[in-house]
């Protein structure tokens, strides 16, 4: 546990030393800000809700979250620091978990300023607190899953940009397009797409519908990809 926290703290330090961190945060806040205006969430006459904004957020997150985690492991490969790390008394699991928690904390820090919109919403009207709360739980769970996937992508290559692409392309294809595909297909394919339909699952959360099924889906996929990332880092030794 000490090692996980040491790696996490070092990773956060490096994250906040890099311009990418600030670009990602600024970009995210800018886009959500624009989305708030564009969807007219604060227009008079509309119900006080951020649902329209929340609808678009997961799409952005498919691209943004892998940008947070892309450097985590690939940069260790590229700079060779993986060698000093893996010859210190540190296990691959501790490395992956440390990196994961750092990326996740960064994600939460990035998300936090958007609470301002919720506060503003209260000033403008009478928002549905329950739905806002469950939406944020949904966003958190999306972060839990996407970060794990981004970290897995980062463990595959020593090139940050490649890691980013390996992160967002599958997320966009499987997690989000499934939202559209699911109504077009039948049979077992439909069942599969229903399962991986992240947007659909998130939509439930933003309607205030928190199901165990939904929570378990995000946590289980995160665990799966973290496990895979550990295996990939371990496999480096056998190459």
């Amino acid at each position: 546990m000490r090692n996980v926290s040491a790696i996490m703290r070092r990773e956060l330090l490096s994250l906040f030393c890099s311009p990418i961190a600030y670009i990602v945060i600024a970009g995210f806040l800018l886009i959500t800000g624009v989305a708030v205006l564009w969807t007219g969430s604060f227009s008079p006459g509309k119900p006080a809700s951020l649902r329209d904004v929340f609808f678009w957020t997961p799409w952005m997150l498919t691209v943004i979250v892998p940008a947070i985690s892309m450097r985590a492991i690939s940069e260790e490969y590229r700079s060779g620091t993986i060698e000093s790390l893996m010859t210190a008394p540190v296990s691959e699991l501790q490395l992956v978990l440390g990196k994961y928690f750092a990326s996740l904390i960064f994600y939460v820090i990035m998300l936090a300023p958007t609470l301002v919109y919720v506060v503003l919403m209260e000033a403008f009207g009478n928002p549905d607190w329950g739905a806002s709360l469950s939406s944020y739980l949904g966003l958190l769970l999306i972060g839990v899953m996407f970060t794990a996937f981004g970290l897995f992508a980062s463990s595959l290559t020593s090139n940050q940009v490649v890691a980013w692409i390996l992160g967002w392309v599958p997320l966009l294809l499987f997690a989000c397009l499934a939202f559209f595909v699911v109504s077009l297909v039948q049979g077992w394919v439909r069942v599969v797409f229903q399962q991986v339909n992240v947007i659909g699952r998130f939509d439930e959360f933003s309607r205030g519908l928190v199901t165990t099924d939904g929570v378990v889906f995000f946590l289980a996929t995160a665990a799966l990809f973290l496990f895979l990332a550990v295996k990939v880092v371990e496999s480096r030794r056998w190459r």
């Binding site: 070092r10 330090l13 490096s14 030393c17 700079s79 060779g80 620091t81 060698e83 000093s84 010859t87």
Partner: peptide
């Protein structure tokens, strides 16, 4: 290690 890997930041 030969390449003396360190974190520049």
């Amino acid at each position: 290690p030969e390449s003396v890997p360190l974190y520049p930041e």
